[in-house]
Design a binder for these strands. Structure first.
Lengths: 150, 150
DNA sequence: GTAGAACCTGGAGCGCGCTCCAGGTCAAGC
DNA sequence: GCTTGACCTGGAGCGCGCTCCAGGTTCTAC
């Protein structure tokens, strides 16, 4: 990109658009990933400039942000493809989309629970190591036999 | 495995041991993964029967369980290798291990926070879809123009 | 003793989610 | 008009974390 903020030329359109570089910057996705997502059907074909360069609109960005939330919560590309296909198929698929989201939400809740449980295991281990260090200092340097399972 | 519970022959040892199949069953890891973890140095070389078959001891299992907690919380194999190497190097590495665990714990806390934030985004989306369905029924079948961004 | 299941090793292969590359076209400043 | 950087496409390549395979050995039940 250049300096300033170029209002990208539109293909005879109303709304201001973003180049792929600008979308990459805003979403944190790479250029390649953005093109890959489009090729994979996660996003519908983005509008083009007269010279065939991508011009993203606000709706594209909003959808990408939502996809990122799905990705961050561990949804696979394959499932996101399914979801995107349902969305592209129109309002009649709302029940299916709702079902997918509910299931994903439930799995997410499970994963959060597991992580929290594991977090307490880590805390115990950390406590254990801290105690080991304290004991060591107490006896002024090492103490074979105070070795534990870990 | 056969029926009954065979007390596996020990290599002239004290403690009861487990075969790889039994460890696989208890941990949920596959035979291949268990062998892979050993080859990768995540677990120290497991004891063998006279015929060179693995015989896991309680300490092996405990360590595996802890590794699983690390894995479930998203630690990479490479980091687990580092941790395992420190552990194998003895008590002098306790401060390093503690530092690793603390850092991992902090990252885990971040990831849980992100997941919880995303969970609320999902909840909003679900609410939105539910509302769409309600509206649809209200008007007795469809309603073009009630289409949203998603 | 023998059959069949369980196990061994070294190494190749795989699915996922990108990432990189080659060989071009397009756009903006001078 | 020219340069330089952003962008395009199709397809190959990669790192991770396993998973599978071939070819052989061991264990257990009968």
């Amino acid at each position: 990109m250049s300096s300033g903020q170029p209002l990208n030329p539109l293909p005879g359109d109303r709304e201001p658009t973003l180049t792929i570089a600008q979308v990459a910057e805003r979403t944190g996705l790479s250029h390649d990933t953005l093109r890959y997502y489009e090729k994979a059907g996660l996003i519908e074909r983005v509008g083009r400039s007269t010279g065939n360069q991508r011009r993203y609109q606000a709706a594209d960005l909003a959808w990408l942000e939502f996809l990122l939330r799905l990705r961050e919560t561990g949804m696979s590309i394959a499932d996101m493809q399914r979801f995107a296909a349902l969305r592209a198929a129109g309002n009649a698929t709302v029940p299916d989309r709702l079902a997918m989201l509910r299931e994903h939400r439930a799995e997410l809740a499970d994963r959060i629970r597991v992580l929290r449980r594991n977090a307490t295991v880590l805390d115990h281990k950390i406590d254990h190591y801290e105690q080991l260090l304290l004991d060591e200092h107490e006896y002024e340097y090492e103490q074979p036999g105070s070795e534990e399972l870990t």
